[in-house]
Nucleic acid binder design. Sequence first.
RNA 1: GCCCCCAUCGACUAGCGGUCCAGGUCGCGGCCCUUUCAAGGCCGUAGCACGGGUUCGAAUCCCGUUGGGGGCACCA
Length: 421
Amino acid sequence: MSVVVRMAPSPTGLLHIGNVRTALFNWLFARHEGGEFRLRIENTDTSREVAEAVDQIQDSLRWLGLDWDGPLTFQLDRIEDCRRLAGQLLSEGKAYEDEGAIRFRMPDEGVTAWDDVVRGRIEYPNDKLEDVVIVRSDGRPTYNFASPLEDVWDGITHVIRGDDHIPNTPKQLNIIRAVGGDVPVYGHVPMINGADGKPLSKRHGSVNVQDFRAEGYLPEALMNFLALLGWAPDGETTLMGREELVERFSLERVSPSPAQFDYQKLDWMNGVYVRELAPGDFSHRLVLWLGEQGYDWDAELVSRAAPLVQEKIATLSQFPAYAGFLFHDVEPDPAELDGGGAMLAAATEALRGLEPFDAAAIEAALRATADGLGLKPRQAFQPVRVAVTGSRVSPGLFESIELLGRATSLNRLEKAAAASG
RNA sequence: GCCCCCAUCGACUAGCGGUCCAGGUCGCGGCCCUUUCAAGGCCGUAGCACGGGUUCGAAUCCCGUUGGGGGCACCA
């Protein structure tokens, strides 16, 4: 039997990273098994629906590379089928009317149990199960009715979802049995918490896929990081590309205990992926990201600046802070010029007629200048760096000056020399 | 209140009864390299929540305690 799994978000807003992690597990499992990963929108509660949500969900999944099989389906489209089945249950005495709504009759005795792929056997005493409403008095089916029905109709073999659904499972199990459907295998994966152990929310940092994208994380890095939240192939491997993740993933190794989202580790991992990018790919992504964020910086110059920062930045969003001086004026803080007036003046002269004006020649000239003034490289170059880039932290000084060009560099050096006396 | 789930370094985890005085990664600290910042190299820091069992032997199995989390809608 071929595996069919699904992601079934409700279109109430942006995709939460926790839902994405659950989606990722579904996707990895499907791809590993050569099965299907479906995307289904659970929109029976039209009052909470957000217009753009369906598009945003798809954009986010595409960005991460979580492709789905078959058409996007909507729960709303199957309302009639749900009602028909509710009527059937009614006529069979398995459900009853209650103030205009229809309730499903849960068993009163015994237990409802299932073997959860990630947590083992779970049992629920049936006398704790309430007769859930399956159709509201206005005729719309409820989640606990529509969702398991859709799982049956879609031939879902494994329901992999957040563990907040554990209490729903025995109810859905009974409903599926009542309509004579095949019961899927269930697996409840833990939720993701923030550093304080509370469910991950806005106050911890980014939580929506779009936030991570806007902050310049690479989708492959985010995927790698997310996969390791609650799953590990062994005790050693931490860096895995999508191929390897698909190849090694298994539901049995998903941990039942909740994980905390460690933004620092994500930053580290993203930096690793940034550094591993082919130079051309890196600059390409920078250009795209800058465009998305509304910068209208010259793509050619961005591409030339990219190699200078590729080893230094962890996220694409750090690019402007490092290389912004190439695209706009800078205003060095005189205090940070560190009394380097003599060096600044001497550097200006050293560079004025320098040929060729490239990093190697610039380095030789500035080192000679520093020597001439009896300054250590560190003392000599820092004021120059601040003058030229406006900051104490920058890409390599000599490459930066070369890229900036002679005219602008000299101009900034002269201004700084004057400012520092 | 009732029901359910979870529990190894600060964090993510490996460990599925002996090979563990617990391994890897992030973080953190130190040193090296160095034009800043990174990156890189080396060294180090730190953990089986607690209490009972079971067993020749427990991080690993069982029970309890404590601590976290989730659920109890005509939301999904």
